[in-house]
């Protein structure tokens, strides 16, 4: 059971809060856009990504559960 990181880019304002919490997953580059470095991070990253979702001022981040791999 893994999870997928989904960002609503219409809401995202690139303030990089998520990047500070989980730089392994989120990066705001010099062009001022947010890039998701890894859409399906390891389970060990779940807590950090959840914290990012909570502290995103725009509530733009969602975690979607993935079906277990066969």
């Amino acid at each position: 059971m893994g999870f997928k990181v989904v960002v609503d880019f219409d809401l995202c304002e690139s303030n990089a809060i998520c990047m500070q919490i989980a730089p392994e997953v989120f990066e705001v580059r010099d062009d001022d856009f947010l890039y998701i470095l890894n859409e399906t991070p390891d389970e060990g990253m779940r807590e950090k990504v959840e914290e990012s979702a909570q502290r995103c001022p725009k509530q733009a981040i969602k975690l979607e559960d993935l079906p277990a791999a066969e």
Partner: peptide, 12 residues
Amino acid sequence: FNRPRHVMRYRA
């Protein structure tokens, strides 16, 4: 000013 990436890096 419009430099979110830098702010977060230096914040660290």
